[in-house]
């Protein structure tokens, strides 16, 4: 990758990281890795680490970029998304001690049911791309939140475009 492309990627990643709120599901909300009292496993706690440490979750979230965005109703990966996911795959391949849950989300336009299915489609598109880049399927799991968990709350395209996303959420451990 050229230096220019790398810098572009970094800028994009930092811009995305700015809207990354680690407590995005709020107290008491069902966590992406296990709801309270759920049977699907306890809560996985992993330190974010130092963003300057290339093996840390913080580095992945902020420097690599933990999310990709989608067009309305689409689950097709844009060239920008492919670039971020290629970097995600490289990172995951270099750091086999992490597992990932890929969350698919939709904006609020659309019914609850359709958006759940659409979010799942987006998460699967990301998972399939990462698999194609050599990341083991056993390290990944997908979940859809539909329109239940927007990160931006305005009702215009400026917010909608950030909500139509798939986020790769890491946790320590070799599998999910």
């Amino acid at each position: 990758m050229s230096l220019a492309a790398k810098s572009l990627l970094l800028v994009a990643a930092l811009a995305l990281a700015a809207c990354n709120n680690p407590d995005r599901y709020g107290a008491g909300g069902a966590g992406g890795t296990g709801g309270a009292g759920g049977a699907g496993g306890g809560i996985n706690t992993t330190g974010l680490g130092d963003p300057n440490n290339p093996t840390s979750i913080a580095y992945f979230n902020q420097r690599v970029g933990d999310r990709v965005l989608f067009a309305v109703d689409q689950s097709t990966l844009s060239p920008e998304a492919r670039q971020i996911l290629t970097a995600q795959a490289q990172w995951l391949n270099q750091n086999p001690g992490y597992a990932a849950i890929i969350e698919g989300h939709a904006d609020e336009q659309g019914t609850r049911e359709y958006n759940l299915a659409l979010g799942a489609r987006r998460a699967a598109a990301v998972q399939n791309f990462l698999i194609s880049q050599g990341v083991s399927a056993s390290r990944m799991r997908t979940i859809s939140y539909g329109k239940e968990r927007p990160i931006e709350v305005c009702s215009s395209e400026a917010c909608y475009q950030k909500n139509r996303r798939a986020v790769t959420v890491l946790s320590a451990g070799a599998g999910v």
Binding site: A30, G31, G34, G35, G38, A39, G40, L116, I143
Partner: peptide, 9 residues
Amino acid sequence: YTSYETGFP
């Protein structure tokens, strides 16, 4: 109903 109680819908 649909629940995320297990962590997944």
